[in-house]
């Protein structure tokens, strides 16, 4: 029981006040690429029933959907919940309404990132890609393991292309924004 309490995903504020509610939030999400299924949600809970994270914590995809539909913009975007999805797509596979929860999670996370909420580990991986063009750097240890197995030498990614893509897509601005915040701390 104590274990479950430690894992409490989201603390609720009760009661919900009119001032907590942003009526346009659900339309903002449903008009984004991947968010189209949101308004079809019946809140039946099939998503939570099949969720491997719900099986070991009190995180529930249905609750995230419910809160988005309620319009709890700030609460949803700043919550730990939206970073607890393991992207296994089981809910998406089982949803009779084609809500596509995993795609909605992507929409929510993208918005959260713009508002200053991010999973630090994911950001680190992105910085690695910006630096090396790949998640892990090529090291001498890697080279020698590959040589032992007679595998060809690992090619360097075209880092210039990666930089140009990140610049053109606006991703460098996201990286800069978080670098500034780290600088302030």
């Amino acid at each position: 029981m104590s274990d479950l309490q430690n894992d409490r995903a989201q603390k609720d504020t009760i009661p919900i006040l009119d001032s907590d509610i942003d009526d346009s939030f659900k339309y903002e999400i449903s008009s984004s690429i991947g968010g189209e299924g949101l308004l079809r949600c019946l809140k039946c809970g099939a998503c939570s029933g099949g969720c491997p994270v719900s099986a070991v914590t009190d995180y529930r995809p249905r609750k995230v959907l419910g809160n988005v539909l309620l319009g709890l913009r700030e609460q949803v975007l700043s919550s730990k919940d939206i970073w607890m999805c393991a992207a296994c797509f089981t809910c998406e596979e089982r949803c009779v309404q084609e809500v596509n929860f995993t795609e909605i999670i992507t929409v929510l996370r993208n918005r959260a990132v713009k508002e200053g909420f991010v999973a630090a580990g994911y950001l680190e991986m992105a910085k690695n890609v910006a630096r090396n063009g790949r998640v892990g750097a090529k090291t001498r240890a890697v080279d020698s393991m590959r040589a032992k197995l007679n595998l060809p030498e690992l090619q360097d990614p075209d880092i210039e292309e990666v930089h140009k893509i990140m610049e053109a897509s606006g991703f460098n601005e996201i990286l800069a924004k978080y670098a500034d915040e780290e600088g302030k701390e």
Binding site: R109, V113, V129, D156, P157, F171
Partner: peptide
């Protein structure tokens, strides 16, 4: 694949889908 770079999977989609 020549000079393959990261495929930017779900964790990167989480940061920015278009990127």
């Amino acid at each position: 694949l020549p000079n393959e770079s990261c495929c930017a999977p779900f964790w990167m989609q989480s940061l920015d889908l278009t990127t």
